[in-house]
Design a protein around this nucleic acid. Structure first.
Lengths: 124, 124
DNA sequence: ACTTTGTGATAGTCATATTAGCACAAAGCC
DNA sequence: GGCTTTGTGCTAATATGACTATCACAAAGT
């Protein structure tokens, strides 16, 4: 799994890491049960501090994407609470759709965008 | 237009302000051509500093939602660059849909969510 | 034994967010 | 003409979060 960090981004490094790992899971680059590299390994590969990677992993654990194990390290383990996920998605979509609405984007165009992206994430 | 700030939120005050104003535009609480309160007025109403409101307005201007005028203050003026807006929306949807995908949310459920929210933003 | 693992504590640096105070030119009002 | 309000600019102080740098330690694998 290739991870690229933009050091000039205004987005925190550990957030970029988290996002790319989530995208990696959705695009089936990594699958349920797979292990992520150790915090020290990944940190050295990217060229950042160990604790920054650890923070990204902690966030992913807290959000229910991975499970941290002493023996196997960080393992992909999806906590599927659909109701909670739908509520969260609704909240996040709210602002994005409002922006689009101000720019005269129609609901049909949003549907196309959703379908287009969903085809990329067809891992089930 | 009612504005509520959560001072315990991890989201910056000026970001909360920006978001609520965008939602206000989309829900037609404020309409194109309307003026927003002056930076000093709004700051006093909310109980925050003048410069924080000014920052929110500056961001909204830079993003093409309002236009700042010496005489009329901050006026709702939507810069409709649809292509740019679609590109931006695609980028923002990418992560949100990836998250949902990991939680087994189907594209039909996303469509329902989109339609539901779009009904709220029917100002055109 | 040796290495690697996650994890914790501590401390320093840097950027950002927020507030405060002062100022000034332009516009509106009486 | 006086007065107020407007956006905008400047500087400075404080607080918080992000990132890095070390040192450390117990648990697990080889």
């Amino acid at each position: 799994m290739l991870i690229e960090i933009d050091f000039n981004s205004d987005e925190a490094i550990y957030i970029q890491l988290r996002n790319q790992i989530i995208l990696g899971i959705a695009t089936a680059t990594v699958r349920e049960g797979d292990s992520l590299p150790s915090v020290r390994q990944l940190a050295e590969t990217i060229g950042i501090n160990m604790h920054t990677v650890n923070k990204a992993y902690s966030v992913l654990k807290q959000e229910g994407f991975i499970s941290l194990d002493k023996r196997r390290g960080a393992v992909i383990a999806l906590d599927v609470d659909k109701m909670k996920a739908l509520e969260e998605m609704r909240e996040q979509l709210q602002l994005i759709l409002a922006k689009g609405c101000c720019r005269n984007i129609t609901r049909e165009e949003v549907h196309e965008l959703v379908d287009d992206l969903f085809d990329t994430y067809s891992f089930m």
